[in-house]
């Protein structure tokens, strides 16, 4: 579904990605782990066309997406849940969700159907639909951010730092939701600093270190791997 090879990106003099190869197949649940500053967010932003990037190849469903703008990439069916959630604070939960389906705003029936299904996944959002997004708890905001991304009806869902700053109970619930979504057929990439949980939940994993893929493989294998345990799982 998503194929990337030799992806590079830099911020002025800082090289954030130096030749990343990565592949996500349809229906997979993939995690990208790595230390703070490894380039995980930059990788997702590069896919979305939010930062300047160069690559030998970068395709989504066989289409070259190297020169595309964020708008065009969203249109193709890629949605990003950004680091720090970034909900529209002064707008209601309902309006946040409406904005998620902005590109499909003419197709009322489709939007209503999606609203039904995200509210089925996150019932709390229906209860809070008239509340301002900024009044939600961190976990609820993360649910809203995911739901908002799903409102676009994406084929590929990218989630940056799913568990950042959230209590363990909440994080577990979020993982359960994403796994349920995965079982319904959604292709998902989760970027995490919390490696242990991510490796338990996902099928396949990439370890990113200073802008390159240091390791990749089945998540279960990486969980057992000595080097990974030392570097990312606290021994």
């Amino acid at each position: 579904m998503l194929r990337i090879s030799g992806l590079e990106s830099r911020y002025g003099g800082i090289i954030a990605l130096k030749g990343v190869d990565l592949e996500v197949r349809a229906g997979e649940l993939v995690t990208i782990i790595g230390a703070n500053g490894a380039g995980k967010s930059t990788l997702l932003k590069a896919v979305m066309g939010l930062v300047r990037r160069e690559a030998r190849a970068m395709t989504f469903e066989g289409r070259d997406i190297r020169g595309l703008s964020p708008l065009e990439i969203v249109r193709l069916g890629v949605a990003l849940v950004p680091e720090g959630r970034q909900v529209f604070g002064p707008m209601t939960v309902a309006d946040n969700l409406t904005m998620g389906a902005y590109l499909d705003r003419g197709r009322r029936a489709v939007v209503r159907e999606r609203l039904e299904s995200v509210c089925a996944l996150f019932p709390v959002l229906r209860e809070r639909s008239r509340q301002l997004a900024e009044s939600l708890s961190g976990g609820e905001q993360q649910m809203l951010a995911i739901a908002r991304a799903l409102m676009a009806g994406p084929k590929l869902l990218l989630v940056d730092e799913l568990s950042l700053g959230l209590a363990p109970v909440v994080v577990h619930e979020l993982y359960r939701k994403l796994m349920a979504l995965h079982r319904q057929g959604m292709t998902i990439v989760i970027v995490e600093q919390n490696a242990r949980l991510a490796l338990r939940a996902c099928d396949r994993a990439y370890v990113l270190a200073t802008g390159v893929v240091a390791m990749e493989g089945r998540a279960r294998d990486l969980l057992e791997n000595e080097a990974v345990r030392k570097a990312y799982l606290g021994g």
Partner: peptide, 16 residues
Amino acid sequence: RAVAANRFAATLMGID
């Protein structure tokens, strides 16, 4: 309003 609240997130929604 979404652009006013958060430009970056608005871009992610496909808002021009």
